Structure formats: structure tokens, C-alpha cells
Amino acid sequence: MVSYSTTSSKPNTFDLFRRERRFLTHEHDMLRTSLQKFLEKEAVPYIEKWEEEKYTPREFYEKLGAQGFLCPQVQPEYGGLGLDFGFNLVLAEELHRVGVGTLASTSSSIIVPYLERFGNEEQKKRYLPKCVSGEVTTSVAMTEPGIGSDLASMSTAAIRERDHYIVNGQKTFISNGINASLFFVAVKTDPKATPARKGVSILLVDADTPGFFRGRKLKKLGQHSTDTVELIFEDARVPVGNLLGEEGQGFYYLMEKLQQERLLIALGAMVIAEEMLKTTMSYVKERHAFGKPISSFQNTQFEIAEMATELKMAQTFLDDLTEKHMQGGNFVTQISMAKWFITEMARKMSIRCLQLHGGYGFMEEYPIARRYRDVAVMPIYGGTTEIMKNIIAKNLGL
């Protein structure tokens, strides 16, 4: 079984990072080992540079594709391996563990599945093999200035003129906007629809589409190696053949895939929490104050004990949900619980771990500084904590 472990000189010491997950097999373990070796060579030495440049080069994604790490779930007739969600999980975990290139997981496990599920045969044959190889990277464009979580209120309009849609509007906070060559853009094809969500459709927009422009590369608090941009549409001409699925169904397509997206966000937050606690435990054992390691102070021990307990409980809950998700169940309420609780837990943990590092935690040379910045947005994207609580309350019958 796949497990995470740390060495211990005490045979009876509880191993916080060891987890036996029945849904992961030897084949998943083999992928993890291969991916870890790849990232150690192709990502870890360059992370600092990519953070400074606010960009992960396209070549990194192409190398991932060349090694067979991207889109493992895509069926063989479209160039993939037809593997189960456990392989997507391994990809997400290891990318979050090193803290770079996480958009490879987003593209493979969140965006490309829209094409697999709702695309027609021509669209699948045109794009899926290139997504698997890394030649095409994807981005989803939903958010607009001023609308936040109220997706149905978007104003980007796509008006049909014969065999094209004429698209006008603006998107913001779009991850992978620089690297992406294929954009899944949520638009209003019927601005007068009632309710408004019935007027939303999704268009596949190629990066070289006339009238489509990338705007500013946005400056962010964290996740610096992941580029985030604005997108601008000025009479952009998108072929009617690039409509994903049916007109007016875009909102429902997006909602259908949110369970997997939020599960993966919770998974990413869990990995970051594990890494923060692991590095902090090592630090407090090595750092001395007043003649003894700070791990011997009662306050340090209580802080670590509390975080370890929260982490273990969250691990158990998330592993159970992941197994159920892989079996095809619908667990929107529980996944909403996991998304808000685990991302908030990780954000709070970043503060506590930074505090235990003292002044050194504020220095960029220590990884806790970057983790502190990077985790801050996780309770926001993919559905805010407040939205998650609304879903839970509604499904509890309130």
C-alpha cells in the first residue's frame, strides 16, 4: 500500500504521516516514485527561479506530458492510458508537495474532464491527444470583475452570427492564462434567459482566436510560480463548432464537475498542511533556545499535538471521501465540508507553524514563508468557505 513515512529512532513513536489507503495500489506507487524522481530533477532546482519570474515555463508541462504524467484518465483512443482517479490524485499530491506546476494537475484532472464528458467526437480527437502530450495546456475562464461567486451574473456575451459566435467581455483571476493554448470560456449565449443560469454556455477558445487577447499578468500574494491573468474579448470570432455540449447548459456542466475540483483542492491543502507540519517538527527539534531544543517546551508540544490531531482527523475523512468518489458516488455535502474545513485548517496551520519558526519563519530561505503565502487563497478559489457552508446548510434542510 502507498504510505508516507518518516524515520524514527523510537519504535513506538506514532507515525503521523503514514496512511494506508486501500484505493491506491502498487501501480499508483510506481507512478509516485517515477514522478518524484522527475520532479526532483526537473522542478525542485528551478522553483526559486520560477517564483521570482512569476511563471512556470511551458517546457515543464511538455516534459510532464512526454513522460506520460498528464491526463492519465484519458482513454487510449485519444492518446491516454485510461487509468483511474487514483493516478490523478498521485499527480496532484506530488506537485503540491514540491509546490510548483500544480496547474498540470488542474488541467489534467479538472479542466480536461469537461472535454471528455461533454465534448463531441471531433473536439475530442482534435484536442485530447495534445492535452495528453503537453502540447496543449488548458485554462478555464469563469470569473469576471465584480461577480465573484455569482457565476450566473456574468456579462461576457457570445452572440451567434451564422457559423461563428462573436464574443465580447472580460475575465479575471484566470490561472495558467499565459501558458494555456485552449481556454474553456463561460459565456452568455442568451443574455435574456430566466433564470440567468440557463443562458450560460461554454466555448472552446484557441489562444490564436482573432479578437482574443491576454491582459495584465496579475500580481498576487502567493502562488507566484503560477501565472494569473486577465482575458479580453473584443469581437472575438469563435467557430460554432467550438461550442462545448449544448447551448444554455454551461452552468450545469460546471456544477457537475465541481465535486472533483473541490476534492482536489482539499487534497492540495492537505498535502501542504502535511509538509508544513513535517518541516516545523524538524525545525523545533533542531532549534535551541535557553540551552535546549524548543521542541521540549510545553507550548511547542501542545501546538504540535493539536495540529497533528487535526491533520490526522482530516486525513481520515478525506481518504474516505476519495474512495467513495472513485466508486462513483455523489457526496456534494461531505466534499463541501472537506473543502472548507481542510483549506481553513491549512491556512490556520500556516500561521501556527510560522510562529513556531520565530523570526526565521519570516525569511524567504525557509519554506514555511512560501507555504504561508501559497495556502492563503485556498479557502477562496473553487468556491469560498462561505459558499461551502451555504451548500452544507441547504443540504441539511435549513
Rank of each mutant, 00 (worst) to 15 (best):
M1I: 13
T6I: 14
K10S: 01
K10V: 10
T13Q: 15
F17L: 00
H28S: 08
L31A: 09
E42N: 00
E48M: 03
E51A: 02
K63G: 09
A66L: 08
Q75P: 10
E77A: 13
G80H: 09
N88K: 02
V90S: 05
L91P: 05
R97C: 01
V98L: 03
A104P: 02
A104T: 10
T106V: 15
I111S: 06
Y114C: 00
L115E: 07
R117E: 14
N120T: 12
R126N: 11
Y127G: 07
L128W: 15
K130H: 13
K130N: 02
V132K: 07
V132S: 09
V140N: 00
A141I: 02
A141H: 02
S149K: 12
M154D: 10
A158D: 13
I166D: 05
I166H: 07
N168S: 07
F173S: 07
F173H: 07
N176S: 12
A180R: 00
V185N: 00
D190G: 05
K198D: 15
K198R: 00
G199W: 08
L203Q: 08
V205R: 08
R214Q: 05
R214N: 01
R216I: 01
K220H: 03
Q223M: 13
Q223E: 15
H224E: 14
F233W: 04
D235N: 07
A236R: 03
R237H: 04
L243V: 02
Q249V: 05
F251E: 02
E256P: 06
E256C: 11
K257W: 06
L258N: 13
R262Q: 07
R262G: 04
I265S: 08
A266I: 05
I272A: 13
S282W: 15
Y283M: 04
E286L: 04
R287L: 09
A289L: 01
G291T: 10
Q301E: 06
Q301P: 01
F302K: 02
E303Q: 15
A308P: 08
K312C: 05
Q315V: 06
D319I: 12
G328H: 11
Q334Y: 11
I342Q: 11
T343C: 03
M349Y: 15
G361A: 13
G361E: 13
F362R: 14
M363G: 00
Y366A: 07
A369N: 14
R373A: 03
V377Q: 05
M378H: 15
I380S: 12
Y381S: 07
E386W: 00
E386H: 01
K389C: 13
I391C: 04
L398D: 14
L398C: 02
